[in-house]
Nucleic acid binder design. Structure first.
Lengths: 235, 235
DNA sequence: GAACATAAAATTTTCGAAAATCTTTGATTT
DNA sequence: AAATCAAAGATTTTCGAAAATTTTATGTTC
């Protein structure tokens, strides 16, 4: 009897990693804020060792910075980094999309269709005032974009895309409601058009639509972040 | 006054990280070999905590794998990964090169000229039987390629390139001598031509030359790795 | 009062023992 | 012989105290 799939026993270090990652992404800490071990120990309920492992890993992924003998800080946010991240994301993801359109099989099409469907359903029931449902929407959004490029055949591209998503999602979280509430924008129509072009194997069109999608997102995020900086400076 | 170097003090964890990284890159361990803490503790002369931090970081960078409650292993090597890594490297670095040619200033040109010069000098005095001088040559080689793309203006691209280099250098190390000894190849001429095209701001030519440079490297590495696999299977 | 040294406090980092978990061994049963 | 189970051994993982380092506070000198 197949051993009941050995329990996904998450070590304490992984628990701490997941928790901190989630909190940083969702904006629970101020950028550049020092992350004191004693404080985190209480917050996460784990000792020093697993905590430092989690922070080391987050540092390697770019979510926190570390300086020898001076501990860890939440990684800074900046307009330059936001622009850079979104541009690089577009560059890499469009390539992965081209390859997926060329190589994708029935399963790939199935993943696109079903993730788009799930995104639509979550979008219907989504409540802009509930952080829980917004996080779920964000996850479905990511799933759709992952599905789009899931036939690229390149593990390396996938990893890069994953890390770039991580770098950009921090800018989105604190203002996702603003974003989806933007009257000039219907995200489901944009996503539907990208999906259609991809399934029709129209690579140039799909790439253009995806580029436009990210350009618009970048513009809105840059605007939102500029406003935040202004508020911080003036108010 | 224990140790007079207070400023550039490397923590023990960083020492362990540097050492292990170097040993993995230079092929001191067999791929997929388990990395036992007790053994590493003796080898590195540090306790469990900094060791685990180093391994966690190496895992995030892809040089080792980790499984909960089962410790760490040296990351595997494979033909697929080698191909993928070299292709992705070419894709990303050619873009960074295009941008650098467009944006590069006098300092950028200076970095190319001087790193090419340093590479040539190291190449002259390099002894294929001395691992020390081979490692130095590898470093000058990396410096040149870093200089080439150092005016891309994208921190993200630079990071990605750095990580991809890390992923590919493992395949090169055990057979660097084979590579540079290949009679059909004069690396200094290839590098000189790339440098010339870049400095002449001829982006299409520079990109073609860089692509050819990496394609040839990839071919030789794939051949070398196939031979190694055959030897492991038969002999 | 500014510059400098020094002590005290706060914080990070490391160590090694203890706990938790995996792996092997070997006896027992089917 | 194959399967099962529990104890013994090996290894990873965690904890908390101790060491090392940075930061802050205090006092002294010019």
């Amino acid at each position: 009897m197949a051993k009941a799939l050995s329990k996904s026993t998450k070590s304490r270090g992984e628990q701490a990693y997941s928790l901190l990652r989630h909190e940083i992404i969702s904006g629970a800490f101020v950028p550049e804020q020092p992350l004191r071990l004693a404080q985190l120990q209480e917050r996460c309920g784990v000792g020093f060792s697993p905590l430092r492992e989690a922070l080391t890993r987050l540092a390697a992924e770019g979510l926190v910075t570390s300086e020898a003998m001076r501990g860890f800080r939440v990684a800074p946010l900046s307009l330059d980094d936001l622009r850079d991240t979104m541009e690089t994301r577009t560059f890499v993801e469009t390539e992965a999309l081209r390859r997926s359109i060329k190589r994708g099989d029935d399963d790939w099409e199935g993943r696109i269709v079903s993730s788009l469907h799930a995104l639509g359903r979550q979008n219907e029931r989504s409540n802009p005032n509930d952080p829980e449902s917004l996080a779920a929407l964000e996850d479905r959004h990511r799933d759709f974009h992952v599905a789009l490029i899931s036939a690229s055949g390149s593990r390396r591209l996938e990893q890069i895309i994953d890390n770039l998503y991580l770098g950009s999602v921090r800018y989105r979280m604190p203002s996702l409601s603003n974003l989806s509430l933007n009257p000039a924008r219907d995200l489901m129509i944009e996503h539907g058009a990208i999906s259609d072009a991809a399934l029709a194997r129209n690579a140039p069109l799909a790439v253009d639509l995806l580029t436009a999608h990210y350009s618009l997102t970048a513009e809105l995020l840059i605007q939102a972040h500029s406003d935040r900086l202004d508020r911080a400076a003036n108010g």
